[in-house]
Amino acid sequence: MTNGKHQGFYFSFITVLSLLFVTVPFILALGFAGALARRAQFAPLRWFGLAYTSIVRGVPDIVFFLFALIAMDQGIEYIRHMVLCPEVTDPVRQGNDFIVCAKAKMPLSSAPEWAHKSYAFFQASVAFSVVFGAFAANTLYGALAAVPAAQLETGAAFGMTPRQTFRRIHLPQMWIYALPGLSNLWMIFIKATPLLFLLGIQDIVYWARELGGTKTGIFDYPHADWRLGYFLFLLVFYLFLTWISERIFTRITRRVSRGQATIGGAV
């Protein structure tokens, strides 16, 4: 349990947890952008917001992950190809191949291994942010609409500009309505992290398979098939993660519903 081969396994837990925390600001930012776009006066922006949220939510997330990953990869390499090697005139897509010049590879094939790994991690974070941003946008949109109109009218009656009303009343009052949806989203997000494995990240699922199997891609073990044991351990890990999150969210809900005109706050 403490030999060198397990270091990768332990480190992968940090990978998963860091993915959770790194992407949250981006998810919320994209969520806000999406929600505000859907409320915008300018019609094309509104359509864009609606298209973003409904397409991403209408498609299974794993499909979107796989698509976003290759699309992003090829998009970046294509742009680099155009900028860095303008002298190559051959088309990038030749039959079934996607060929860019060596300088345009991302990351460069000469780059150290950690660069490859962190680039893959970065791509996965972007894919997760885009998908969960759409879900967050939907929740925040609903929450913004749920704030009682009377509260906003009160703001206007005090002579606040629309911008002031939004910042001082609409936004702070929205959180209580957004919280149930956001906590639900967080739970879904936690449970989506094993999909990192499918995105080619060496995450906990990858190591559980490698270390548990008798004969795997990199190791050859004398022990029997222990994958079931490793997976049961992951199950407990996730149960703990969701259990602790649920407790934290219960606390936050109690905190923000103080003094609100809802059932939970009417104390």
Partner: peptide, 11 residues
């Protein structure tokens, strides 16, 4: 509800 479907498939 507390564990990922993905892990459930593996188990």
């Amino acid at each position: 509800r507390g564990s990922p479907l993905f892990i459930q498939f593996f188990i």
